[in-house]
Amino acid sequence: MTTNRLAPLLHHAVRLTILFGLTAYIAYLSLTGQILLFIAPQLVKYVDLAAICMALFMIGQLYLLVRSFREPVPSCACGAADGHSHGDDHGHSHEPTGGPVKNGLVYGLFLLPVLLGLLMPNEAFAGSLAHNKGMNLGVFTGGGMPADLARLDGGEDPDLKTLFRSDTYNRDYAKLGMLLYKQDKIVMSDEWFIEKLQAMNTFVDNFQGKTLQITGFVYREDGLPANQLIIGRMAMTHCIADISPYGIIAEADNAASFANDTWVTITGTLSKTTSHEMPVIKLMIQSTEPASAPSIPYIYPDWDFAKKLK
């Protein structure tokens, strides 16, 4: 009978440990800001709520543990009191079913994320994973407005309107394109990285000869000529399982001297090329300087981009 009494206690204690481990690990990630290496900022509040919820579960689990200490033979309705039998064979003991090995494995699975998290340093993915994903040049589709754009005069000039002829579907990119067109130097900052890229690729011809500055990691795709490379960023929607790389093809005679995965800031003038039979912008490199990778290197698609344009 001793095992009969000990087993449920052990179960409750292990569950309490797991809940504590998961809660503490998430709290740690959230407090240190490292959580942004795993999920996008708009999800952080939900994960914080989840951690609070698991902390409540911990209290509940503690209560269950204490109760099974006090009442070694649990006074539970799912048992003999009701008279209806379930699991005739396991009678109605609160003895955990299954051997200790299997239980250990299942519980071990819950501790695995915490153990891996503690044993291995958290790392941001920039270039190295782009190779698994295939670079996206942002050809097709399409916080407030970035400051550099908000400063511009929104007034619509008829000449520009003919340049950025739009239909219902790419109207937003046409609007953004007009704003970018008015800039002396287009800077690819974190905000609206994808949106700017897509606006320029929607109206490739309008941006010929414009000056552009971009910071990102160096990446090469199979079949890229020796004098070209891609300057890219990783975009995250929810979590790193869905990150995809976005970038601009850059060209220079000394392109081979840029090592993959290094971060650089490149300034140059825009030209054009084709990728997968679609016209895309290309950056003719004029000057480069080494850059350091941001601690959170991800960029995020802006869900309210069209609304902020107005």
Binding site: I26, L29, I35, L37, F38, I39, L43, Y46, V47, L49, A50, M54, L112, P113, L116, G117, L119, M120, P121, N122, E123, F125, S128, L129, N132, H238, C239, I240, A241
Partner: peptide
């Protein structure tokens, strides 16, 4: 522990769990 593949597995694993948890 610093094997890059294992590092990817670990980051993905934890990321998917954290995302799905709520």
């Amino acid at each position: 522990l610093s094997n890059p593949k294992l590092q990817i597995v670990k980051m993905m694993f934890i990321s998917v769990i954290i995302e799905a948890l709520p």
